[in-house]
Design a protein around this nucleic acid. Structure first.
Length: 706
DNA sequence: ATAGGGTTAG
């Protein structure tokens, strides 16, 4: 009596009949066809087929058994477990079955198990590997960057006389390139008798991923000279090389070629295009590609979101992230979250930052340390240095980046002593500081006015740690000495530094010259800056303020006419505040905000109250920032004041955090906000370019310049 | 019956 079982395709009720006769070719083909019938089988179906195979005896039909295992490993981890169970019950598996199970381990990101299996295969099973064995194993080595094992496998390949197999050669190139040994990869490539599209692509990809983008593009030229055409995969590597080089022209050419060819813009290729465009700063083109993608996975979303972040367009990044969470079926992964946290830090969106913090726990994201590091950075840049400390304290393991984030965060909050204390603890913990650490340390000294400590750390960095100071370190020193009023000493550092000082360095000196009324050095710094950055409106303003303080009106007029002649306008100050998860932006004297009427009424109210409390607007400097007609009104309408008024309007209590872009809090606003905090009983935190200013009860936490 | 090259961060 024949056995009946229903096929797994539920709307196809045709029963398949199988008689338990072993060596019948016809019947064995039935099972075999069944296994070939669908590309993807679920566990239930597989188990049914497996059961039938045992009952009918087809379990001994090797091709069918291989197919069964092959189907099983193409599923999830349950499938792999099932496959290895079947495998373990197979007596004397042949090489084909071995190859299949080894591939299963590699494809499930278990390269170590694959290698152990291979050793078993050689030693226990005494089975000789063939040309199908090594591609999977080498792919595993490439995955886990197992250079040592990879080289051993290369030895085996030679021993088993398989060196001139095209597939093996390709995976050898991939393995060596993944492990960073481009010379060996190239050596394999050069020795090859024939090279197809895939071979070229794997060598090009090797250069691209090892940060040799020029070599990648050069090799592509050779590939074309040899008459091989690129395909989608080649294009992905080429685009990533263009992204690294920020070579928009080349990138556009590739995009054009893709459009003119019959290549399909799949997620992979689309993401590579998005990445290329964002790295080249062409966000609109990137977004266009992104919007036209038929389906978007996490990687595509992450590429677009971090593209916005890298181009300082965090508001758009967060808008897109919210769309991803609400309107797509894709779950943010570690990389998405890293970008989003950095966006939260940029715009000061503490609410969303907290949501993301909770999400990390809820989603059970891996890559724990970098996420915690990012959280530290986010909290400290959103004004919550206390929470940042707590996270740091709770971390079971910390790396250099964790310590750097903590030191930089403390420095940003003007907590110089605490930052230096943290640096000491870091050394006690045996963590080797790097160049970034010293940027944190030196900027902590600079914000805390700790001149001697700063100089000592600068020396130690060179002598004790052997870290050669970069431009940024000299910048910190110039800033440190300048802020402390040691202008000549700052100048000495500029003279001594082995590289050409950049705008930031002359800018630090110039700002200090304004504070300490040093016309001579100020002129010198400004002249350097006007050469380096003729478009920088701040320079003209600072210089004219320096002259104005000394009542050199002729010079003031000269600077202003120069500015006018060059067609440079002062970029308006911009501040933002997040209320109920929405970031609101204000420009100086601006009326662009939908509720600006109310905000200006509030500002009038605030000004009245401040006057009663004895506030007199300080206008001697700022009035020169702006065109004559705007003078009177604009002083009291600085963007940070508008943002603060919005906060007073919209929130009942708590801490307001105002983020300023491209500016420092000016003297006038500083004294005004001190009073607001007292009169309105609010804690206000203002974050400007370089630091936080916490205002409470008429006092400010920061100590410099005021 | 079994095999190869690819995208997001730092």
């Amino acid at each position: 009596m024949p056995l009946l079982f229903y096929s797994m395709h539920h709307n196809s009720p045709t029963p398949v009949s199988i008689t338990p006769s072993l060596n019948s070719t016809k019947k064995s083909q039935t099972i075999f066809h069944l296994l070939e019938w669908k590309k993807c089988l679920n566990m239930r179906d597989l188990q049914q087929i497996h059961a039938q195979m045992i009952i009918t005896g087809f379990i001994h039909h090797i091709p069918s058994l291989t197919k069964l295992i092959s189907h099983s490993i193409s599923g999830d981890s349950t499938g792999l477990t099932y496959a290895s169970m079947i495998f373990n019950h197979t007596q004397q598996p042949n090489i084909v079955i071995w190859n299949t199970i080894l591939r299963g381990f590699v494809n499930h990101k278990l390269p170590k198990r694959a290698l152990l299996g291979y050793v078993d295969m050689l030693q226990e099973s005494r089975t000789i590997p063939d040309r199908f064995t090594f591609p999977s194993l080498l792919k595993g080595c490439a995955q886990s960057l197992d250079f040592h094992e990879g080289k051993i496998l290369h030895g085996h390949i030679i021993k088993f006389n398989l060196v001139s197999d095209l597939y093996i050669e390709t995976t050898l190139i991939t393995m060596y390139a993944a492990c960073g040994d481009l010379n060996s990869a190239r050596a394999v490539f050069e020795k090859m008798g024939q090279r197809n599209q895939v071979v070229w692509t794997s060598m090009i990809g090797g250069y691209a991923r090892n940060h040799y983008p020029t070599e990648a593009l050069l090799l592509f030229t050779e590939m074309e000279e040899e008459g091989e055409d690129p395909d989608e995969v080649t294009m992905v590597s080429l685009l990533s090389a263009c992204a690294e080089l920020k070579d928009l022209e080349y990138g556009k050419k590739l995009h054009l070629r893709i459009r003119e060819s019959d290549m399909k813009v799949c997620v992979f290729l689309g993401t590579a295009l998005v990445d290329m465009y964002t790295k080249c700063g062409e966000l609109d083109s990137a977004r266009k590609v992104f919007d036209e993608l038929p389906d978007r996975n996490v990687v595509a979303w992450s590429a677009m979101i971090s593209g916005y972040v890298q181009n300082n367009r965090s508001k758009e990044a967060l808008r897109l992230f919210k769309e991803m969470v609400t309107e797509s079926d894709q779950n943010p992964n570690e990389i998405t979250i890293l970008a989003v946290l950095s966006a939260c830090a940029q715009v000061g969106d503490l609410d969303l930052g907290r949501w993301v913090h909770a999400y990390i726990g809820r989603a059970g994201l891996k890559n724990y340390i970098s996420l915690q590091n990012s959280l530290i950075d986010m909290y400290s840049k959103c004004g919550r240095i206390d929470t940042a400390c707590q996270i740091f304290y709770d971390m079971p393991e910390r790396d250099v980046v964790s310590w750097n984030a903590m030191i930089t965060g403390l420095a940003l909050h003007g907590l110089g002593k605490e930052a230096l204390n943290q640096f000491t603890l870091m050394q006690t913990a045996g963590i080797q500081p790097d160049d970034i650490t010293f940027i944190g340390v030196l900027s902590a000294c600079s914000h805390g006015g700790l001149v001697q400590e700063g100089c000592r750390h600068f020396q130690n960095m060179k002598v004790q740690y052997g870290i050669p100071p970069k431009l940024e370190h000299y910048g910190c020193m110039v800033d440190l000495l300048s802020r402390a009023g040691l202008l000549e000493e700052a100048k000495e550092y500029i003279r001594e530094m082995p590289m050409k000082p950049n705008g930031a360095i002359w800018g630090a000196l110039l700002s200090a010259c304004r504070v300490y009324n040093n016309v001579e050095l100020g002129e010198e710094a400004a002249n350097h800056l006007l050469n380096l950055e003729p478009e920088n409106d701040g320079v003209y303003v600072l210089l004219s303020n320096i002259y104005a303080r000394k009542q050199k009106w002729e010079e003031v007029r000269m600077v202003r006419s120069l500015m006018h002649k060059r067609g440079i306008r002062k970029t308006p100050g911009c501040s933002s505040i997040v209320v109920d998860g929405v970031s609101h932006e204000f420009l100086v004297g601006g009326h662009s905000h939908p509720e600006s009427e109310k905000v200006h009424l509030m500002l009038d109210h605030v000004t009245q109250k401040l006057k009663l409390a004895g506030y007199v607007a300080e206008t001697s400097e700022v009035l020169l920032n702006i065109d004559e007609e705007e003078k009177e009104g604009s002083v009291s309408q600085h963007s940070e004041k508008l943002a603060i008024c919005f906060g007073l309007l919209k929130t009942r209590a708590g801490t307001e955090i105002v983020i300023m872009k491209n500016l420092r809090v000016c003297t006038d606003c500083h004294s005004a906000i001190k009073l607001i905090s007292k009169v309105f009983q609010r804690e206000i935190t203002v974050r400007d370019r370089s630091r936080f200013h916490h205002f409470k009860d008429g006092f400010c936490s920061c100590r410099d310049y005021w």
